[in-house]
Design a protein around this nucleic acid. Structure first.
Length: 762
RNA sequence: GCUGGGGUGGCGAAACGGCAGACGCACUAGCCUUAGGAGCUAGCGCCCGCAAGGGCAUGUGGGUUCAAGUCCCACCCCCAGCACCA
């Protein structure tokens, strides 16, 4: 029979769609054990689904179908992370409202996902740009505001001149904008900031309990960057009366005797404070000016140390009362520790480099116990983090409005919860202003509002939230997508949380995954959720590279379009190929011919007779072995070897059997369901139990006994299971091929591995 | 530099310390055919050989073991992330 994949796939997709995909509804009241299998939801771009999406979504679909057949109540939802720059930029270019752009893209993505047969619970579909959804994103912001975890401050921020908005530290990659690569500028602006640093210790400590890839945990650990040390004060002396001290942070108080100079960051307040006490103030100011003009990227590119000494000012080492000079250098950063260090060139590479360049002494002094130093000099223990607070406001249109009202008398006032959502008004012009405000600032009618506290005229906050806001909590909304009284009803949250499996790309390791953990912990603290962590197990699918081995990109012209693959070979072949390419987590290049092999496999399976012939015991044994192999492989996400096991079995089979069809189902659901129906079954495979194997059936009564001489394989013969060493030796030594290697038939020694091999040593 | 992950045929890859290369792609030969670029069968690591057979092979060099791709030590190379964080 011809493998008419188009007809088969269309037919079953239509069947599955009945009752709004009833087959895949997750029930809140089920007695079955629950499993929450979550995909990282896509940004619905104009380009449509990428083969990388297909990879991750196929993997989670296989796993979900497997769990359902094993008696689990599975929640496997899908939605849209639809706020963000691309829709807005497209809107600016084409003069179409972003919401229309998003609507069209969502339609296309939905069509594509359905054409791949993914078993989502479509009743729980969510969209972060839906006011009923972002009402709760705003609600969470208000809770952060109430707890003092959202605050406004004027600080130096990363500004992308191309996207005309500020960026979080996590969004700056190698000094460039995460999105467009444009060199980021430093600007001092008043911004909304989330106090993620208040959770640094918990975000770090709770990583240990997570079943996540080690590299992701390590990336988060590095990003949080905890270091234990101490704050120590060095009194300052100069030629005029002065009573200040320079406070430094160090992880090595034990090296204090080796201090030969001090360094402060160019932005350090000490310089302004000392003012005229500094004899060479004008030169110092010149250096500081030069350092300020350097971007972060320039500072990183050129690591040649620069600096200038503060003349007429000294610091006193509190340990040995020695006077040491104070320098200004941009290798010390103002936003870490205290912005000042004690320099120990003997023990620190950077200090050594600086000392060598400026001919400062390098002395070798004995190390002292940390505790003793801290105690004697009156210092205090301190833990520092590299993690910075999250700069949260954006000067763009297409995002959630920050629900704050700025009142001239009351200051920043949260929008009353009853007034949520603060909906995004329609504007004529989405163009960013290029200033510290979003295009919303231009809508006087929307901006003007009465202060909820004093009733006087006030203004709305016109900045919007960053792209990451909506994805910080979406996994909770799936549990209760239409709830009006809370972001998620407690009983539903308790039933489903935490997410058992979270599948997605590694690119979110220190962005989405860190932000979401932070929000989740805040929600935990206010009692809105019952678990400390949102995602128990994380699996990252590896990147699918273009046929040229490079990352797929439009400019390189190496992008593979899933729609074309489905058109040519069908969804089942595409699913199977992407799973067969290699280990799920590895990066792997697309082989344009590769999919053919999987198509051939399905074609062969399709042509097998549905009328069962009596199966031989050899095939029955192979079947049991395959059930075991595929079951274990799916549990470990080894889909490539599971598919290969199915191929091996199918190459032996003369006709279809129900177990094989069930094993195939999670991987190639359309064809498997078609075969199931051809075999005379009226049920859906989703509702069928997963096949089981009998360990006794797997055991073969004969095996190939390997004969080695000095560890090299020389011969083999069929032996019955359980053969004794004496019997094995006798039979082996009698063989011609063995006699050739052991002419006297007298090996020095024989190592016998039961039911496997015998190794003669001569 | 630090951290994590890797180096196995022409390619993607398999391999509880026990026959290295399963499965698939490509390739070769043959078959079928309504001559379809997506059919079927067989072969296919490298070297010597008509063959039988033998030798060599899992980045490099050592080690442990009856036996090492797998365990231990040192080194080289590749990929990813972070990187003047005191």
């Amino acid at each position: 029979m011809k493998y008419d994949f188009k007809k088969i796939e269309k037919k079953w997709q239509k069947e599955w769609a009945k009752g709004e995909y009833k087959l895949w509804h997750a029930s809140d009241g089920s007695k079955k054990p629950k499993q929450y299998v979550l995909d990282m939801f896509p940004y619905p771009s104009g380009e449509g689904l990428h083969v990388g999406h297909v990879e991750g979504y196929t993997a989670s679909d296989i796993y979900s179908r497997f769990l359902r057949m094993n008696g689990y109540n599975v929640l496997h939802p899908m939605g849209w992370d639809a706020f963000g720059l691309p829709a807005e930029n497209y809107a600016i270019k084409k003069k179409i409202h972003p919401s229309i752009v998003v609507k069209n893209n969502v339609k296309n993505f939905t069509r594509q996902l359905k054409s791949l047969g993914f078993s989502y619970d479509w009743q729980r579909e969510i969209n972060t740009t839906d006011p009923d959804y972002y009402k709760w994103t705003q609600w969470i912001f208000l809770q952060l505001f109430k707890k003092g975890l959202a605050y406004e401050a004027e600080i130096p921020v990363n500004w992308c001149p191309n996207d005309k908005t500020v960026l979080a530290n996590e969004e700056v990659i190698d000094g460039g904008c995460e999105r467009c690569g444009t060199k980021v500028e430093r600007k001092k602006l008043k911004q909304w900031i989330l106090k993620i640093t208040a959770y640094a210790d918990r975000l770090l400590a709770d990583l240990d309990g997570l079943d996540w890839p080690e590299r992701v945990k390590e990336m988060q650990r590095n990003w949080i960057g905890r270091s234990e040390g101490a704050l120590l004060k060095f009194p300052i002396t100069c030629n005029r009366p002065y009573s200040g001290a320079l406070e430094i942070f160090t992880t090595r108080p034990d090296t204090i005797a080796g201090v030969t100079y001090m360094v402060v960051a160019p932005e350090h307040p000490l310089i302004a404070e000392l003012g005229e006490h500094i004899e060479n103030l004008s030169e110092v100011k010149k250096y500081i000016e030069k350092a300020k003009n350097k971007s972060d990227r320039e500072r990183q590119e050129n690591k040649e140390k620069t600096g200038i000494a503060l003349k007429g000012v000294k610091a006193v080492n509190p340990w040995n009362k020695k006077e040491t000079p104070i320098w200004v250098s941009d290798y010390v950063l103002m936003n870490y520790g205290t912005g000042a260090i004690m320099a120990v060139p003997q023990h620190d590479e950077r200090d050594r480099e600086f000392a060598e360049k400026f001919k400062l002494p390098i002395i070798d002094e004995p190390l002292l116990p940390n505790e003793e130093v801290i105690k004697k000099v009156g210092g205090q223990k301190k833990i520092n983090y590299k993690l910075r607070d999250w700069i949260f406001s954006r000067q763009r249109y297409w995002g959630e409005p920050i629900p704050i009202i700025k009142c001239p008398t009351c200051g920043n006032v949260g929008v009353p919860e009853a007034d949520l959502p603060v909906t995004l008004p329609k504007v004529k012009n989405y163009e960013p202003t290029g200033e510290a405000e979003s295009p919303l600032a231009g809508i006087a009618k929307w901006v003007k509002v009465k202060c909820p506290q004093c009733g006087e005229w006030a203004k709305r906050e016109t900045n919007t939230m960053p792209q990451w806001a909506g994805s910080c909590w979406y996994y909770l909304r799936y549990l209760d997508p239409s709830s009006r009284e809370s972001l998620v009803v407690g009983s539903k949250e308790k039933h489903w949380m935490p997410v058992d499996l979270y599948l997605g790309g590694i690119e979110h390791a220190v962005l989405h995954l860190l932000y979401a953990r932070f929000w989740h912990k805040v929600l935990f603290d206010i009692g809105a959720v019952s678990t400390k962590e949102p995602f128990m197990k994380l699996v990252n699918q590896g990147l699918i590279l273009g046929p040229d081995g490079h990352k797929m990109s439009k400019s390189k012209g190496n992008v593979v379009n899933p729609d074309e693959m489905i058109e040519q070979f069908g969804a089942d072949s595409l699913r199977l190929y992407e799973m067969f390419m290699g280990p799920l987590e590895d990066a792997k290049p697309w082989d344009p011919r590769g999919i053919v092999g999987l198509f051939r496999f399905l074609q062969r399976v399709n042509s097998l007779s549905v009328v069962g012939v009596t199966i031989s015991s050899a095939i029955e044994r192979a079947l049991h072995q395959t059930i075991k192999k595929v079951t274990e492989d799916i549990k470990e996400f080894h889909f490539n070897t599971a598919i290969s096991a199915l191929m091996v079995l199918s190459n032996k089979m003369e006709s279809l059997n129900p177990e094989f069809v069930k094993l195939l189902f999670p991987f190639a659901p359309h064809l498997a369901q078609e075969l199931w129906s051809r075999m005379g079954n009226k049920t859906f495979l989703d509702e069928e139990p997963w096949p089981t194997w009998d360990e006794k059936m797997i055991q073969e009564d004969e095996f190939e006994l390997i004969i080695q001489v000095n560890g090299k394989m020389r011969d083999k013969f069929m032996a019955s299971r359980g053969i004794s060493q004496a019997e094995a030796e006798k039979s082996a030594l009698a063989r011609e091929a063995v006699k050739k290697w052991i002419p006297d038939g007298q090996p020095k020694k024989a190592v016998f591995v039961k039911d496997r091999l015998i190794n003669f040593i001569i």
